[in-house]
């Protein structure tokens, strides 16, 4: 095992995929020579040449659109949108094209593209560097949406996404790039080397898409979450002393309903947690499915905790961000219900 940050793990996944399959090509803004603004593609151009890893014009539409053409040709493009907040110009290409090539061509043309995007807040990024747009992808038939919460999963999920025959949106919680951030922004930064999941197998492995992980076992309450909020949920469980089970979905679509329902049926209480805005967020889908499947096991209504329905603010970031205090208060509320 090797110590890796999430950045190193993602870089390593690219490296292994490119070494293994010469059809894997990597491009995006600042991705080539410089290796990406977050360094997730560092050294790839030097190692694999500029025709397999290169800089792209500042056009997310162009990056994804050209990637779709390459995927239809038979390549395996892994493209980076520098921030998920910048993906909107590419949205038509993702929704109307990548997601539907297989369907509309009767299976003749396919689109095995991976679109990577740093997502989420906690970095003083304001409204253009902090958004969590996952629900805009989970609403689209034909896409798979993945959000890792640690280096070990990030590498295995990215390798699985690259091997997948369909388009995968790969959202990387940027506040987790360098450490398991639990929402306590006023405490010293904790690096990945202090966390067991910062130990990464240096070889090739896949973490299957569509499989959730129970990252903390518990009996009293289930927290269904993903991305940065996994660590916030664990912190809140420890701080409240509530014996909560924390489920890291890892893949939103396809959703591992089995793991989710088994947990909620066991605990009878469920808190759905995400950083994205509340209304019409992925939590709404989770809450709907959980109440339908677990109604007779529930001791209390499913509770959602999420970002407020405002644009992501700058100076008020920590009042916006659903940190461990807000999560803890809601856990207590759920236990009293």
């Amino acid at each position: 095992m090797t110590q890796m940050t999430m950045i190193a793990a993602i870089q390593n996944a690219h490296d292994l995929a490119m070494a293994r399959d010469e059809n894997v090509v990597v491009f995006g803004e600042d991705v080539g020579y410089f290796g990406g603004v977050f360094r997730c593609t560092a050294g790839l151009q030097q190692k694999y040449g500029s025709s397999r890893c290169f800089d792209a014009p500042i056009s997310e539409l162009g990056i994804v659109g050209a990637g779709i053409g390459m995927a239809a040709y038979g390549l395996k493009p892994v493209v980076e949108v520098q921030f998920a907040d910048y993906m909107y110009p590419a949205y038509d290409q993702i929704v109307s094209e990548a997601a539907r090539l297989r369907y509309r061509s009767g299976g003749e043309f396919t689109c095995p593209i991976v679109v990577r995007m740093p997502t989420g807040g906690g970095i003083w990024g304001g409204q253009t560097h902090s958004q969590s747009p996952e629900a805009l992808f989970t609403h689209v038939a034909g896409l798979k949406t993945v959000i890792p919460s640690n280096p070990q999963d990030a590498k295995g999920l990215l390798l699985a996404a690259i091997a997948d025959p369909d388009p995968v949106i790969f959202l990387e919680p940027k506040r987790l790039y360098n450490g398991p951030f639990d929402g306590h922004h006023d405490r010293p930064v904790r690096p990945w080397k202090t966390h067991p999941l910062g130990e990464v197998d240096p070889g090739y492995y896949e973490v299957p898409l569509g499989k959730a992980a129970v990252v903390r076992a518990g009996q009293e309450l289930s927290i269904v979450t993903y991305g940065t909020m996994v660590h916030v949920a664990i912190a809140a469980a420890e701080e409240t002393g509530i014996d909560a089970e924390v489920i890291d979905l890892r893949t939103l679509i396809p959703l591992d309903t089995e793991t989710v329902m088994a947990s909620v049926q066991k605990t009878g209480r469920c808190l759905v947690l995400h950083e994205a805005t509340l209304t019409s967020g992925f939590g709404a889908e989770l809450a709907a499915q959980i109440q339908a499947e677990c109604f007779y096991h529930l001791e209390a209504p499913v509770l959602r905790v999420a970002g407020w329905d405002t644009p992501y603010p700058h100076a008020q970031e920590w009042a916006y961000f659903p940190g461990p205090d807000r999560v803890g208060r809601n856990m207590l509320k759920l236990m009293e219900a």
Partner: peptide, 15 residues
């Protein structure tokens, strides 16, 4: 939408 995809497809042939 397909205009840029053609460019990408041809880039793939060159790659």
């Amino acid at each position: 939408t397909q205009y840029i995809q053609a460019v990408g497809w041809s880039m793939a042939s060159a790659i």
